[in-house]
């Protein structure tokens, strides 16, 4: 049940991110058309930037689910199956640990940004905290997806173990 709702949220966010790209495109067009007409609207390119940041962090959980991360698989490929799975798991555990710390740091940062009403410099003082909390949400789901993938990595190793034990 929980697994299914996580999966659902991940897919929905990925879908949303795609449509957000059209929003970014639309905002930039609005910016240039309004300037060409001599009635520029303030803060449009800044808003487009915020949407872009949201795309990055809301898209991460899906990228993790699809295992679309960039990495060097040269050594993993060369190692024997079992060892390769163990190294893979060890790396995944490091990824979980790192991202938990990073998540914590971003939560503190977002909270501070809310408290100090941090705003960007520019034609309109747009506050930054909403997008920072979007980052928090995206990173949280990202960490959850990593944990799910770690679970899979553990199962791979156990399954690799099982027949060996049976043989003996």
């Amino acid at each position: 049940m929980i697994a299914r709702s996580i999966d659902f949220a991940t897919n929905i966010l990925a879908e949303l991110c795609g449509w957000f790209l059209l929003v970014v495109m639309g905002l930039i067009i609005v910016d240039l058309v309004s300037r060409a007409l001599g009635t520029p609207i303030y803060g449009v390119s800044e808003s487009a930037m915020f949407v872009m940041i949201a795309i990055v962090y809301l898209g991460l959980p899906y990228a993790e689910k699809m295992k679309a991360h960039v990495r060097v698989e040269l050594v993993l490929d060369a190692l024997p199956g079992r060892l390769s799975a163990i190294v893979d798991l060890a790396m995944y555990l490091l990824v979980v640990g790192t991202m938990l710390v990073v998540f914590y740091a971003v939560v503190i940062n977002a909270w501070g940004s809310y408290g100090s009403r941090q705003a960007i410099a520019g034609p309109t003082p747009l506050v930054v905290w909403p997008v920072k909390f979007v980052m928090v949400a995206g990173l949280l789901l990202y960490v959850v997806q990593i944990v799910i993938n770690v679970g899979q990595a553990v199962r791979t190793i156990i399954r690799a173990d099982a027949p060996t034990a049976g043989d003996a």
């Binding site: 300037r35 001599g38 009635t39 520029p40 303030y42 803060g43 390119s45 520019g122 034609p123 309109t124 003082p125």
Partner: peptide
């Protein structure tokens, strides 16, 4: 933003 407002007041089209 303060200078953009002044440019507007001076008759220019302020652009960010």
């Amino acid at each position: 933003r303060w200078y953009l407002n002044m440019l507007d007041g001076a008759g220019a089209t302020p652009v960010s």
